Computed example of a mutant assay.
Amino acid sequence: MKITLITPYYHPPARGNAVTARRIERQLRAAGHAVTVHSLDAAPAEDILRRITADPPDLIHALHAYLGGAGVAREAGRATGIPYLITLTGSDVYEALEDTRRRDTLAVLRDAAAVAAFHKCVRCRVLDHHPSLAETMAVIPQGVELPGEEFDWGNERFDRGEFVFFLPAGLRPVKNAAFALGPLAELHREEPRVRFLLAGPVLDREYGAATLEAIDCHPFARYLGEVGRDAIGALFRRADAVINSSTFEGGMANSVLEALAFGKPVLASYIDGNRSVVKEGTTGFLFRGEREFLDRARDLLRNPALGRRLGEQGRELVRERFSPGREAEAYLELYRRITGA
């Protein structure tokens, strides 16, 4: 099958859409299919549309209903008659369907041959407001691939019993990266071995500046900048617990799945996306505010056996439910249904 994959981001590879696009691309190619990737951070929509029209695929698969769908997939489908599939990735559901982009986003979803969500909670959220999409909506959980571990620690050393909380996230408001500083500062006063590491690109300049300024006020915290996919695995492996403090996720965050795959307990905000994979007291903890975060962080700090148990159960969950091969086969089944191949 000849597939065109459209993604809002492919560079840098640390962004969620880029991680998802690269994983799907690799799996489809490994299964023997021809895949062309067009990224909106590398070329304008008009150029991508011309390329698709000049060399039509059997199917167009776009990540993000508004960015990948409204900008390219829907127009390409209308120009060529090629069916397109949309994978909902987060801000299309939790922002674009709620603001001035709503009309364009809905048009994309209504014209799509199929719409995939990472979890049933996202499907239900969409169908609660737009039940007419029920026949085209499918649930395909994300797969997870472990990132590389070639990280240069430089002067950073954590070999004296430090307890490391790690937050992998791009610096933008939805990731709420500065949230953990307050409760972790209190925990650090109780236990000086507490450390906080934040890694990810600055995606919102104003929010990034405010976050880095806040980190500078806390000696136990470090911002490591943007860490490539070939290196960030070392941070997961060294972490004692992994944080996700997002205000929303598109069903499940790649970083949460990766933390579980590395056998790390997850401390995550109580949102749909995190609840879809983090099971309270089984693979991690969910918090509704600073007090719950502090209490659960303290539990992990003072009970190493608890963290090990949660981590092992998380690793087993990923093995059973979130393999990249299973994800790719689910998409291929959907592709075949759409194209009749």
Score class of each variant (00 low, 15 high):
residue 287 F to L: 00
residue 277 V to N: 08
residue 298 R to V: 13
residue 293 F to H: 08
residue 247 T to C: 08
residue 225 G to Y: 04
residue 209 A to E: 15
residue 245 S to K: 01
residue 263 G to M: 11
residue 292 E to L: 01
residue 179 F to L: 01
residue 261 A to L: 08
residue 240 D to H: 15
residue 196 F to P: 08
residue 206 E to K: 10
residue 232 I to Q: 07
residue 294 L to K: 14
residue 219 P to F: 04
residue 293 F to L: 02
residue 233 G to V: 00
residue 240 D to F: 09
residue 212 L to Q: 12
residue 203 L to I: 06
residue 250 G to N: 06
residue 297 A to W: 04
residue 246 S to H: 10
residue 188 H to L: 11
residue 223 Y to L: 08
residue 241 A to G: 09
residue 243 I to C: 03
residue 222 R to C: 01
residue 279 K to R: 15
residue 298 R to E: 13
residue 191 E to V: 08
residue 258 E to G: 07
residue 253 A to M: 14
residue 264 K to W: 08
residue 190 E to C: 04
residue 208 G to A: 11
residue 222 R to A: 11
residue 273 G to D: 10
residue 182 G to P: 00
residue 272 D to P: 02
residue 286 L to K: 01
residue 254 N to V: 05
residue 260 L to S: 08
residue 196 F to W: 13
residue 200 G to K: 15
residue 262 F to K: 03
residue 212 L to C: 04
residue 293 F to N: 09
residue 263 G to Y: 12
residue 266 V to R: 15
residue 184 L to E: 06
residue 216 D to P: 00
residue 275 R to G: 00
residue 224 L to F: 02
residue 266 V to S: 14
residue 281 G to H: 12
residue 211 T to E: 02
residue 230 D to K: 09
residue 207 Y to N: 14
residue 224 L to Y: 04
residue 194 V to L: 14
residue 189 R to D: 11
residue 235 L to F: 05
residue 181 L to Q: 02
residue 210 A to E: 10
residue 271 I to Y: 11
residue 241 A to Q: 07
residue 180 A to E: 05
residue 223 Y to N: 09
residue 208 G to V: 09
residue 226 E to H: 09
residue 201 P to M: 05
residue 226 E to L: 10
residue 229 R to G: 15
residue 270 Y to S: 12
residue 189 R to W: 06
residue 243 I to S: 03
residue 185 A to L: 01
residue 216 D to Q: 15
residue 250 G to A: 04
residue 265 P to G: 03
residue 219 P to D: 14
residue 218 H to V: 01
residue 267 L to Y: 02
residue 260 L to H: 08
residue 191 E to Q: 09
residue 253 A to C: 14
residue 201 P to W: 00
residue 299 D to N: 10
residue 275 R to K: 12
residue 278 V to M: 05
residue 183 P to Y: 05
residue 275 R to M: 09
residue 296 R to W: 07
residue 211 T to F: 10
residue 254 N to I: 06
residue 257 L to G: 11
residue 187 L to N: 12
residue 202 V to A: 15
residue 177 A to E: 01
residue 180 A to N: 04
residue 241 A to S: 10
residue 209 A to C: 04
residue 189 R to H: 15
residue 226 E to V: 00
residue 266 V to K: 13
residue 297 A to K: 03
residue 298 R to K: 15
residue 203 L to H: 04
residue 268 A to Q: 07
residue 230 D to Q: 05
residue 186 E to W: 01
residue 263 G to Q: 10
residue 245 S to Q: 01
residue 290 E to G: 07
residue 233 G to W: 02
residue 180 A to G: 04
residue 179 F to A: 00
residue 286 L to D: 07
residue 293 F to T: 03
residue 191 E to M: 05
residue 232 I to M: 13
residue 201 P to R: 11
residue 243 I to Y: 02
residue 204 D to K: 00
residue 284 G to R: 01
residue 286 L to I: 07
residue 264 K to R: 13
residue 189 R to G: 11
residue 283 T to D: 04
residue 284 G to K: 01
residue 270 Y to T: 06
residue 263 G to T: 11
residue 220 F to R: 02
residue 210 A to I: 00
residue 210 A to D: 05
residue 233 G to Y: 04
residue 207 Y to L: 01
residue 278 V to Y: 06
residue 268 A to M: 07
residue 298 R to P: 10
residue 247 T to F: 13
residue 250 G to D: 05
